[in-house]
């Protein structure tokens, strides 16, 4: 991926992220977040994580944000009328962010790995293909294409079978919880 694309999508992500915080209207905030997430998905793809990038768009930018919008519409929330800025909160929040960024940049400067570019760590299809046992993945790799979804699926179902069931259980419990929370009290 060309560098300017990275900068473009980074800018997209961060700028709309800032908009989420700054905009008064929740609907505008939600839509900004969608754009921000699309930028983020592009960054994922730039990191050869096609599957994650896809579900970032499908789940987050799609399903979750639609849910947000739906709730905002349902509750009929107006934009905050008074643009009263909570000065201590703003100063405190910005200070936190500043210190955090300073800390982060101090850490980032110190490590060799951080200075490597994507070109420095190219994917090694041949080496991977030789060790691969699953034939479809092997074929893909031999054709110099990354079967991203297949590899995630392989890792998911071969290494984390218990955890994925746990997640399933969590979703079920979440569903039940939502139903109970949303039920109106019948008097």
């Amino acid at each position: 991926m060309p560098a300017f694309l990275f900068y473009f999508f980074s800018f997209l992500t961060l700028f709309f992220g800032v908009l989420v915080v700054v905009l008064r209207n929740p609907v505008a905030s939600a839509l900004s977040l969608v754009v921000s997430f699309v930028g983020l998905a592009a960054l994922f793809i730039s990191l050869d994580a096609y599957f994650i990038g896809t579900i970032q768009i499908l789940v987050y930018a799609g399903a979750v944000m639609v849910l947000f919008l739906f709730i905002i519409m349902l509750l009929d929330i107006k934009a905050e009328e008074s643009a009263k800025v909570n000065a201590p909160a703003v100063i405190g929040g910005l200070m936190l962010a500043l210190i955090f960024i300073v800390q982060l940049s101090l850490v980032l400067g110190e490590h060799e790995l951080g200075k490597k570019t994507i070109a420095d760590v190219p994917l090694q299809y041949e080496a991977a293909a030789q060790k691969e046992l699953v034939t479809t993945i092997k074929t893909d790799l031999e054709n110099k294409s990354l079967p991203d979804a297949k590899l995630v699926g392989k890792a998911l179902f071969s290494r984390y079978p218990f955890q994925i069931q746990l997640i399933g259980g969590l979703l079920l419990v979440g569903t039940i919880g939502v139903v109970i929370l949303s039920k109106r009290e019948v008097n």
């Binding site: 909570n86 909160a89 405190g92 929040g93 936190l96 210190i99 955090f100 800390q103 850490v107």
Partner: peptide, 19 residues
Amino acid sequence: QGYTFVLGLGIIAVVYVML
């Protein structure tokens, strides 16, 4: 928000101590 602020301070403190 106050709680979040303190939480953020905590994160910073942890990062400071750890790194």
